[in-house]
Design a protein around this nucleic acid. Structure first.
Lengths: 338, 338
DNA sequence: CCGCGAATTTACAGCGCTGTAAATTTGAGT
DNA sequence: ACTCAAATTTACAGCGCTGTAAATTCGCGG
């Protein structure tokens, strides 16, 4: 029962351990007869390579960490799925790390507590500023995801939030909406994500010749449909009367749908609603949600490629890449009629 | 730049490597003065333990694998979150493994491809039968999750699907519903999950004195809201006229809500709907979903405890545990009026 | 049958850390 | 001061695998 080691196989086959290793790795310069003999020994003994030994010897684990706030947010779960798939294609597995959106947790991830357990880290920061990130001594290659501005020295993959937000607003304006609300942004310290989407929101309004009315900006916590519903509901009850609501993410939009429905406000007839992320529910709820969709496949691919280049030795300046997004038109803010 | 090793610290502090190791681990029998000196050396050199070395030396990685079909299914994402949290409390990290619901992938996981990379595995099988699972030679402790019957030799944690399903049906019956449909079960090869919920469905009908009408069983693929909507829609269009729909999971229920809404059928007035899992959206959609909720915390706790006991040497028969569930009453099938 | 470059195979030294068991130091009690 | 158990510290042998560089074997022309 004691685990079969490489050396056991070697002895059994009458070759050196290195030869067995070569066979295991499919190294070309192994004579066919030797390969067969070794393979037989492997089968007979039921040998399986021990990854711990391999990891130590090679200094690699072929694991990457993906760190983001919360797996329960559908966008992140879907992102994790896509990245895991792309990583598998490249021979890596993914270790998920939830920061809970807490600064210390993000810091802990940066501090490379997991040094030696992963070959690289993909981090979607929420709290950490680019300067703080830049200062951390890194032992492991890192690629940043998401909207936060990234330090020049680090690689970063994102979509153009500002442009996408402006695009959403312009679409709403093209539908004839004039009082476009934004939901929700924490008032005291809007996340960088909210900040960028707000900037785009404003740009979109201006580009459409609409006034910016701060009373249409709904304060509230993010990434929780119920608090979004409550926040928006409160605003509506206080008299806010939008004809469209630009929600910062799908969960907020779900909350908005609920708040509106509870008040008998029809979507999209009375109020159009847009989401952001195109998570699976967006297309299922009724009305289905028009929303911004990042090209997650491309995001995953680029992020992994950059990270793997780093792992393989690239040591230049940070690459900052922008991947595509699209506006998916659905019932909650349909295409403009012609 | 070359990584600082334990031995570097040892030399710097003028002690043996083992003493440094002891300090790192907070071993008690280290004199205060020595500890301080070593700590200083650690700080000065910026030493961080290399987990690869540790893993090899101890034969442990403090990582567990959690294998299930798909991270994009909200229930699994939420389960992963809860288990990751509970695992962290116990000093373990979680490696997520998506099987995509494919038999080979499940087999690959069982074959301990990841031998040596995790100390234990939590597996929620979809395809593998208990006999097949039992036969696999295991190198790593394993605990099964979910409904599939488990071999006697393995630990297993689940909720009582049959009882829960019966409970749902009885609740619907208590609401006065008489034509309770089941959505959706693949006709050819219903998953074990569907099978058990169907059994409970039948029991519930019988317990309520309602006839079992197979024309009320909607065939269709599982775990995809859109195909559920399509399947249910087709059934409705063909004349099926239920006054309640028991959906095998929340996604199916979301699809049902959509199919019903598209046909102007009101929920719960005309048709009551129930989900299963109580994923986050269940409480947000309109109408919010009455559904079965497993006590995930308890599930996570028990599963991890069993697994860790195995890791620490327990080698007895399989423990089969049933954790609690509850029926969460919401708009789609509200509490019975008194 | 020998010489040689190419094809195979091997010896060996770690990768960085920990467990064991033994060595050394300490300090309380004579 | 001296003894002895308890408290500290250490030497050393791996954990299982791989990279390097050197050794061996092979195949073929001469």
């Amino acid at each position: 029962m004691p685990n079969v080691r490489l050396s056991d196989v070697a002895r059994h086959a009458g070759v050196s351990t290195k030869t067995v290793s070569n066979v295991v790795h499919g190294f070309v310069h192994v004579r066919e007869s030797t390969r067969a003999r070794v393979q037989q020994a492997i089968d007979e003994l039921g040998y399986r390579p021990n990854l711990r030994g391999r990891n130590l010897a090679t200094g690699r684990t072929n694991m990457l960490a993906l760190a983001f706030p919360d797996l329960r947010i559908p966008y992140f779960a879907e992102l994790a799925h896509v990245i895991a798939e792309a990583a598998a294609e490249r021979g890596y597995r993914l270790l998920l790390e939830e920061s809970g959106g807490a600064p210390e947790a993000e810091r802990a991830i940066l501090s490379a507590e997991e040094a030696g357990i992963v070959d690289g880290v993909l981090l979607q920061p929420v709290w950490l500023t680019s300067t703080e990130i830049a200062q951390h001594r890194r032992e492991v290659p890192l690629v940043l995801l998401g909207e936060n501005t990234a330090p020049l020295t680090l690689d970063h993959v994102r979509i153009d939030n500002i442009a996408a937000a402006a695009q959403v607003v312009q679409h709403l304006a093209a539908l004839g909406r004039q009082r476009i609300a934004f939901a929700c942004a924490k008032q005291s310290a809007p996340s960088e994500t909210s900040r960028q989407r707000l900037i785009g929101y404003q740009q979109g309004l201006e580009a459409s010749g609409l006034p910016v009315d701060t009373s249409l900006i709904v304060p509230g916590q993010v990434a929780d449909a119920h608090s979004a519903a409550a926040a928006l509901g409160a605003a509506l009850d206080e008299g806010m009367a939008p004809d469209a609501i630009f929600c910062r993410d799908d969960l907020t939009a779900l909350g908005a749908l609920r708040a509106l429905a509870e008040r008998g406000i029809r979507v999209p007839d009375d109020v159009a609603v847009t989401g952001w992320d195109d998570s699976a529910v967006a297309s299922v709820v009724r009305p289905s949600l028009t929303c911004v969709r990042a090209d997650e496949e491309q995001l995953a691919r680029r992020a992994l490629d950059l990270l793997i280049e780093r792992i393989e030795g690239y040591d230049g300046l940070g690459r900052h890449e922008v991947v595509e997004h699209s506006l998916v038109l659905r019932e909650s803010a349909p295409a403009v009629a012609h």
